[in-house]
Every structure is written in C-alpha cells, then in structure tokens.
Design a protein around this nucleic acid. Structure first.
Lengths: 222, 222
DNA sequence: GAAACCAACTCCTCAGACAAGCTGAGAACT
DNA sequence: AGTTCTCAGCTTGTCTGAGGAGTTGGTTTC
C-alpha cells in the first residue's frame, strides 16, 4: 500500500472521522496522547502533530495538564474550497447580490476619498483595457469593483467580496482567453456610469447599473 | 481568564507574521526545520508542530524531501470568528443583499415543492408568533427565510445564508427581549406577501418586498 | 548527449527524558 | 463539619538523538 499522506495527516483524518461519527461529544476530552498513539499504532509526536493540525482548523483544543478537547464537530466551512468547486454562474449571482447592494449603500455613504479612488482605478482600467496583458486588465477591473465595495463602508461586504476575488479572477482570465470582443467597447462606459451614479448620490440608479453590468457578465458565461 | 500560549502556537504566529510581511513569497520554500528552530530559539519538534498547525490552516504545505512551502499569504477567513465580532447592522446589510437577490431568483426558479415549503413554514411561523417562546418564534422565522433562499436554487447563496444564521439568531433573540411589540402585527403579512410574489413569478416585486422587510428590521436595531 | 548513479539535502517518524500544569483525594487546620 | 493545604499522578509541552524515506542536482558512465 502506497502512503500518499504522512502518518500525521492520516491520523488527523482518522480523528476527524471519529469526531464526526460522534465517538467524542462536543466539549469532551479525548484519550491521552500516549493512549491515542497506542490505539492508532503511531508514535506520540505523530499524534501531537495530528492534534496540532486539527487545532489549527479549530476542531480541537489542547490544554496543558488537562487534555485535548473537541471544540467543534466539523471544520468551519472552508470558503476557498467551496468557491473553488462552485459553479461560476452561482458565484456571479452571489457577487451580483453583494455588489448591487454595495453600490446602493455607496451612493449614500461615499466619501471624497472614495470618489478619488474611483477616478484612479477607472483611469487604470481604461489604460489596461487598451493593450495590457489579460492579467493586468483583470486586476484593474477588480480594483475598481473593490473600490465600489469599499465605498459602501461595510466591512462584512468587503470581506465577502475579497473571499470571492480569487475565484472571480480565474473565471475572468478563462473568459478572456475565449472571447476578446467584449473587453474594449461599452465596458468602460458601464463602469464609469456606476461611479457617476454613486458620485451623484443616486442609490437606485447605482444599484440598477451595477445589476445590469453584472447580469451582462453572467449572461456571457451561461 | 488568562491563557498562556504554548511555544508551538507562538512559533506559528511568528511564521504567519513573517509570511504576511513578505519575508517569503507565495510558493517559496521556507528554511529547513533545523534552521528555523535555531532562528526562533526552539526545538525542532516545536517548529514541526507550528508548521503542522499552519498546514491545517492551509497556509503552508510541507513536502517530504523537498521542503516547506507557502501556499497562501493569509489564513482563510474564519467566518465564524468574523461574524461573531461583526456589527449586527453590517450582518443585516449582508443578509439584505443576499436575500433580496434570492427572492428575485426564486420568483423565476421556484418549484411546486418550494411553494409547499412556503405554506408549511408560514403556517408554523403564524402559530409560533402567537404564544410560543422566543426561540421557537425565531426558528420558525428563520425556517421561512431559509425556504426563500432555497427556492433560489443557488447552493452558494444557501451556504452564505447558513453561515449567517447563528449570528442572526442571536441578534433576533436579543432584540425580542427588548421589544415585544413588532412581533405580531404586520410582520406575518409581510412574509406572506414575499411568498405570494414568488409564487406569482414577480421577481421585482419579490425583491422589493424582501428589501422592504429587511430594511425595516435593520432600522429597528440601528 | 542521455541515462545511471550518488551524495547531500529535505521532511517523517520514533523513543526517551524531563518540564510545566491540572485534578482530585486525603491530610491538616479552623 | 467545613475549609484550606499538600501532593501524587495524571495530562500536555518541549527537547534531543537516531534512523527512515523522498527529492534534487551534480557527477560519472556509456
């Protein structure tokens, strides 16, 4: 049998499996390290590393002198993982939800500094849309969109967007390889229109324009 | 309660700090175990546990015979943690974004089964709104809102909502302790109106009603 | 030039020793 | 009796030395 994973990783998986199966309840203590090592047939330091790995994932917590305790039944949703596998259409719909609302909020909360950022990022985006490599263009586009989110002054929305960014970036790069047409034309104008609506404090207009733009993107990929 | 950090945890934090500061770039190799141990003034097994912890958090990856590599600049956002600390107003704005869009999508995608779920959950909610304890009422309310999200048939939005649920639940319970007035009156009607708009395939109406309802909730807490 | 070889690196695992901290039972005290 | 003190025996924390196993890059060999 080929061992693809180190013993410590296998031990961590085994512990996670047993926790999931209800062998140890929430808040309960696991058997001691020496005991576990004997049970799984590995050395004590191997068990320690397995426990440490699950501690990093916030499933276990070890207290010196007391023991190792279960603090969560399952690893917290790894959004990176979820997003990596998610259908790009679903991600775009999530993004649409967040960004539309962010545009609406931004129209009432934007500061002069936000407007300055809009100008800079839009200028960058225009330059990049002309003859830069794809990844520059994508970064410039994302920078503007992030500026819109930031202007909503809601840290939760910003973090949500940042979580989505890697997935969106990959999807955009894939898209650009297939379809170079839509890169130049009305796109820059659509972005400027969103910024204008936010600048003019028009929540509904900003939201509508953001929705329209992202709906267009969604209809390209689906 | 004071909490001492074991050396291995401190070492993990130090490594994370150095990675964040750009000392080692993405994909780059860290110095060897013996080297790092000497640098931080700890034993080799301590370094190994620190690395294992960061591996559990998907920041590092160690390959036997090759070395330890950086695979992410920062630990994936622990959303449980983020939400626990987040301002409830921000969470409600996030929920508003997701749920409004979900209502819109649901109006075009809802199945007969979804409509049945609406009827059941609305009936439960009505019953619970009359004389059940607070936590029943909250669960019944959340069940209906989850049904709306589910009817959008977008797994990402559903997972997003589920991530928010614990935080929303706590906030609702806190709210009900302060203000028992708004529990009965127009609330049930507002929920039924959302369900009706989805049933009648009216995306804009469904979205508007969801927005209105959640805006009302937000204005109560802020 | 290409394949085989090898040495020097890396992480992986184990065992043993001791330190540090917690817990509960019993002794000592009030 | 009730409270506090003490300590033995458990726990995890840390270090070290010894090999095992895999990777890498240079050297030798053909």
């Amino acid at each position: 049998m080929i061992r693809r994973h180190p013993l410590a990783e296998q031990a961590a998986e085994e512990l996670l499996r047993r926790i999931g199966s209800g062998e140890w309840q929430l808040g309960q203590k696991l058997p001691g390290e020496t005991n576990l090592a004997a049970q799984l047939g590995v050395g004590r330091s191997t068990i320690r590393e397995a426990v440490r790995e699950l501690a990093g994932r916030r499933v276990l917590e070890s207290r010196q002198g007391s023991g190792v305790f279960v603090i969560a039944y399952q690893a917290a949703e790894d959004w990176d993982q979820v997003l990596r596998k998610a259908d790009i259409t679903e991600v775009l719909e999530g993004r649409l939800a967040i960004e539309t609302e962010a545009a609406r909020l931004a129209a009432t909360r934007r500061t002069p500094a936000d407007l300055r950022t809009f100008r800079y990022t839009l200028a960058d985006r225009k330059k990049a849309s002309e003859k830069s490599p794809d990844d520059w263009y994508v970064e410039a586009d994302l920078a503007f969109h992030r500026a819109v989110i930031t202007a909503a002054h809601n840290a939760l929305l910003t973090e949500l967007f940042d979580t989505f960014v890697p997935r969106i970036r990959r999807a955009m790069l894939d898209m650009l390889k297939l379809d170079h047409v839509h890169r130049h034309r009305h796109d820059q104008a659509a972005h400027e229109a969103i910024a204008d609506a936010i600048r003019d404090r028009e929540p509904e207009l900003a939201a509508a324009r953001a929705r329209e733009h992202l709906s267009a993107v969604r209809s390209i990929v689906s």
